[in-house]
Write a protein that binds this DNA or RNA. Structure first.
Lengths: 150, 150
DNA sequence: TATTGTTATACTCTATAACTATA
DNA sequence: TATAGTTATAGAGTATAACAATA
């Protein structure tokens, strides 16, 4: 069997996974970044600034992103109670339905991708990847469990 | 230690890796897709149509992509000898220098990311991911070893 | 007629800079 | 003055449809 080096294997698997998310998002006329936005909103109502930090984007980019998500009926801006300059972004029922559907489809894609693996192999890569992610999050001062799609 | 499930771990690692490629590309005012383009051209001179298939884009998107890469001096269009409708896209010396530099930086990022792992863990995930990628490529009729960044 | 590539058009996504309302 | 968010502007990236040149 031919073998990839570790770098190539990780690069290729990441392109594959991004592509899966994009395809699932496209089923709802959405994009990868829209899916990430909805994913964050599943369990939070962040401000625009907080979203910018979580997504690694400028606040003006997030403002437009939220505009387009709102136009599709997936999110709404809720005025902040404590600071009249600020808004909180919340998922609508339609938005929750979309993100749930994308997440379910994506889980199915991963299920199929990993079908050739034994339970032991699966546990092994989950364990190793988790350790890598935790170490990376610690080094960069990020809370791994409050980020990305989930 | 907290644990992610397999789907979350794979999703997060893929976002992390894409981000690494993007940051390295940005060191040369490039993007992820420009880097993928240059990566493909490292060992081939494809037509626009072939590039469209390899990148999963419409040929008109590739036409613009190549325009912008050419404007930066990274690629050039070479008239085909056999079909006067067709062009082949080739890397320039400047383009090769950019893609080599991005690849080297990315390899360094992965090195650092995997620093916490033992040699055994490293071999294990490389082996498992390679098997997954080969199975996926076979099922989708793709030649794994003629694709993506490399 | 069919194929290769480009162009016109429209939209999403992104950053920078300037602006407003509020703090 | 400083901060939260929006808007104006510019550019990359993408797809669809129409087109010219060639097969």
């Amino acid at each position: 069997m031919p073998e990839l080096n570790t770098t190539d294997a990780l690069a290729q698997i990441s392109f594959l996974i991004q592509d899966m998310v994009e395809r699932r998002a496209a089923e709802h006329e959405g994009s990868l970044i829209q899916t990430r936005l909805l994913g964050i909103l599943r369990d939070r109502k962040p401000t625009i600034n907080e979203l910018a930090a979580l997504l690694g984007l400028d606040k003006s980019s997030v403002s437009g992103l939220v505009d387009r998500a709102a136009k599709r009926g997936w999110v709404r801006r809720v005025p902040s109670m404590v600071d009249r300059r600020s808004v909180r972004v919340a998922l609508t029922d339609a938005g929750r339905s979309v993100v749930d559907s994308v997440a379910a489809g994506f889980a199915q894609d991963i299920e199929q991708l990993l079908a050739p693996l034994s339970d032991g192999d699966r546990d092994a890569i989950t364990d190793v990847l988790t350790r890598v992610l935790i170490a990376h999050a610690r080094e960069h001062g990020v809370d791994l469990f409050a980020n990305l799609v989930r």
